[in-house]
Write a protein that binds this DNA or RNA. Sequence first.
DNA 1: CCGCGCTGTGGAACCGGTTCCATAGCATTT
DNA 2: AAATGCTATGGAACCGGTTCCACAGCGCGG
Lengths: 308, 308
Amino acid sequence: MPAVTIRDVARRAGVGIGTVSRVLNSSPSVSRETRQRVLAAIEELDFTPHPIARRLSLGKTLSIAVIVPFFTRPVFVERLRGIEHALAQSEYDLVLYNVETTERRDICFREIPRRERADGLLIISLSPQDEDVKRFLQADVPTVVIDGRHPEIHRLVIDDVEGGRLATEHLIELGHRKIAFISDFLENRFGFVSSLDRFEGYYQALELADIPFHPEYLKQGKHSQMAAHRLALELLSLPDPPTAIFAASDTQAIGVLGAAREMGLEVPEDLSVVGYDDIEAAEYLHLTTMNQPSFALGTKSVQLLMAV
Amino acid sequence: MPAVTIRDVARRAGVGIGTVSRVLNSSPSVSRETRQRVLAAIEELDFTPHPIARRLSLGKTLSIAVIVPFFTRPVFVERLRGIEHALAQSEYDLVLYNVETTERRDICFREIPRRERADGLLIISLSPQDEDVKRFLQADVPTVVIDGRHPEIHRLVIDDVEGGRLATEHLIELGHRKIAFISDFLENRFGFVSSLDRFEGYYQALELADIPFHPEYLKQGKHSQMAAHRLALELLSLPDPPTAIFAASDTQAIGVLGAAREMGLEVPEDLSVVGYDDIEAAEYLHLTTMNQPSFALGTKSVQLLMAV
DNA sequence: CCGCGCTGTGGAACCGGTTCCATAGCATTT
DNA sequence: AAATGCTATGGAACCGGTTCCACAGCGCGG
């Protein structure tokens, strides 16, 4: 079955190739009658335009590259889902790149932002460095960063400071004054900033309520249930243990719940736990959690990218 | 900054375009000296070959389309992660399509399997119909289905019957004889078969142990924690309630745990619960679960696709 | 009747690679 | 010395679209 091209259609319809192309792109300057003939020929030959050829002559790739770190994490998946949903309604393909090491991230940041590679670039939760951004701008590929920071890049920011503050204030309103914060490493090789911001909010809330910040109530570790579990055990074994724990993500909050159970503590009677990210499991775990509109953030990022 | 092409490189190096192309594709028939000159010119001009042009003249798209349903579900994400990992090391792009409605599925099955669209197609957990498969074969696009069924398609199957049997036998060995099965709809519009197979395994295990199958111990509902929660409440309110529940996925198993807690039952003392899929949360929930090598399945599917 | 403008159309040139054919240069064989 | 073969190379043709320029045909105003 040899490929049917625009020239075959033109011959069949008895018109020129330009006319076929005009019909395909619904140009107004084709007479009604000619258009009918061409459409009939397309139908008869079961013709589909060749996307690659189209891209080459348009000088566009018609694809959007999406760089997402660790898409095992529910928030990232949910944002990606939003992005996919928005792109499905456009003529753009979604080309996916997952990043789980800094090496891979650097390769992605170096090689993907090229005009001939993608018409647009969406980056989730990674903060490009100055030299990366310089390359992005030089390559002239529209770029939007979700939940990352760099002054010279279009970005959708999440007010994690506010979120951290609200979560902490919630605990304070419940009467707690000994509130601990468990998070993944605030300084990390991937430049994730959400936990840092949530910590900032936590700190502000304490300050506003005149509660002194206890450094031993801040615990950092790998982003996993297991690590958070261990950190929570440490906290709960302190001479003066906290009565509430704010975890920087639900994944970590689940680890805290495990630790509480291991220590024989009831949640929320003996220990209040607040998580962050709104994973589905939260409601079954007596877990208060901060809701993030991740899906909407994904669709919004696509709109922003298209407007750039 | 005008795009640098192979012709610019040829002029700079004082060679023909064919030679540049040969250097780019590391053809052996270029003299050492000429190769050096060309490489120097490439370096000086910061030349990168234009992928789209390459694809057009190669007649390949250099991309693999991946169709995945509901990639909120952890198993699907994990398989996708395996696929991404394998493709990252190849020259192929991963173009992602998420399916959450049957309409979207049908559109994907109709439009994506075209030679000019993708060099290969990976389908996760969806079973194409005969007419779809006919189109796949006619379009001559290598296709691999993970965890779906159709005799004429290359596929990676998971022995969910065996898995269901093992899970149920585990419960039987613990001494249970009143074992219920909670799952999403066994007959569904998406053609998901894993739960059906697990049910088949459950049934076989009962039969082998001479335990009669009680239809009221089979509960079907939407795939969500909430739905499973309700179904579990129904089960536990039966005049003769089960002492063990096998849930077709961990997501549903979490719902069962919630229901047990609501009824004041301790797990596993008062009720045994077995899940399926190996989500990370399992270990914190006193949940026994059947492990699935999802990531490996993803990488394997890519290998299989490449070998087709 | 001429010139002008407008509409609809044909097709060459172009996008930037790869591939194949022709050929030059040189060594080897007869 | 002629024939043969091998290696390295140049560049036209090609992949299948889009776009732009040229032009035909027609109506209209002067």
